[in-house]
């Protein structure tokens, strides 16, 4: 944005944090145990889930309470296809998951965006998401309540060479690569022309309408991009956890990205990623104590919502700005 060229701002610590995070994730298999590597793979995909969600929440200003439906749709579609046609190239099964997510989000978006205001949109998406949850849990081809088990990690065939995703930490590195690529796409949308219009819609939808923009269509774009990327993340989770259950579509799973966004800060692109990592840390630290996880997470969320409206990243950079003596601008960044 031009303001960055003309209006030099305080030292931005985001690239440094990003570099550290990437280094940690990339080297993790060399120094951490299997359990932690597995957790890291899940966290990476949840990060993508939350970043995709924030395109609607932080950028466009829509709170959907049914995003888990798209995550589950991607996971189930690709998991089901992989079991039906085990010889299909891996990327096609993943792409199928993404395609199903795109279609489902287009349909749900078309219905839900008729009521794009506050609580009604939240409850409508909640109801539609629960509908998907119930349908998955009662469909025999999708394993009903038990879900799909034994989803294989295939061999990638590049002609000249092959990568066996079942071996070693190969699948983890695939997840890492895919997360970087998907995040980059989302980053581009957020900071580009489309992102600017979506941010404008959040701030003043009527003004945008009278600048000749079909606001509902642009909200639908945000919804579909978000749903598709979410479904791709879901598709990638299936061979990683090797079991998928209807719980992936449950509303409590839809609450996760909202939680990450608010914890990390929804007005910044990387906020939800910070939230996802902090959340995973809290949950990992309290995993053996029954009930404490909910108390810690609930308490942390409550404190953030009531006392730190900018989330962790927003608060950090406000503090950082004070430290470096420059005033940072909140908002689209």
């Amino acid at each position: 944005m031009p303001q960055q060229q003309m209006n030099p701002r305080g030292r931005d610590v985001t690239p440094i944090l990003l570099g550290i995070a990437l280094t940690v994730f990339a080297t993790l298999p060399f120094w951490a145990g299997k359990g932690l590597v597995f957790l890291a793979g899940i966290v990476l995909l949840q990060m993508v889930f939350a970043l995709a969600f924030n395109l609607m929440f932080g950028l466009t200003g829509l709170v959907s309470f049914g995003q888990a439906a798209f995550f589950a749709a991607g996971a189930y579609a690709s998991g089901w296809l992989a079991r039906m046609l085990p010889d299909l190239p891996f990327f096609l099964t993943i792409a199928f998951g993404g395609a199903v997510g795109a279609v489902l989000s287009a349909i749900i978006g078309l219905v839900a965006l008729r009521r794009a205001s506050g609580i009604y949109f939240a409850i409508l998406t909640l109801a539609l998401g629960q509908l998907v949850y119930t349908l998955i849990g009662k469909t025999t081809a999708l394993g009903r309540e038990d879900g799909l088990i034994g989803i294989a990690r295939p061999v990638l065939d590049f002609g000249v060479f092959e990568i066996n995703l079942a071996a070693g930490d190969n699948y983890y590195f695939l997840i890492l690569t895919a997360s970087v690529v998907l995040s980059a796409i989302l980053w581009w949308v957020w900071h580009g022309n489309l992102g600017r219009i979506l941010a404008a819609i959040r701030q003043e939808p009527e003004r945008v309408r009278f600048l000749g923009i079909d606001v509902r269509r642009y909200r639908e774009y945000a919804f579909i991009i978000s749903g598709t990327v979410t479904a791709l993340a879901g598709a990638l989770v299936a061979p990683w956890s090797q079991i998928i259950t209807p719980m992936l579509a449950h509303w409590s799973y839809s609450a996760l990205p909202i939680l990450f966004c608010l914890l990390g800060g929804r007005s910044r692109f990387w906020g939800p990623a910070v939230g996802a990592i902090v959340f995973a840390g809290l949950e990992h630290a309290t995993r053996t104590m029954v009930g404490v996880a909910e108390l810690v997470v609930g308490g942390a969320l409550l404190i953030v919502v009531l006392a730190m409206p900018g989330g962790i990243l927003g608060t950090l950079s406000a503090l950082g700005g004070r430290y470096f003596g420059t005033k940072r601008e909140a908002g689209h960044d």
Partner: peptide
């Protein structure tokens, strides 16, 4: 107006639209 944005960005946004 897009009150979180600068005056210049407001106009640029309208032109982009």
């Amino acid at each position: 107006l897009f009150s979180e944005q600068t005056v210049l960005n407001n106009v640029i946004l309208a032109l982009e639209c």
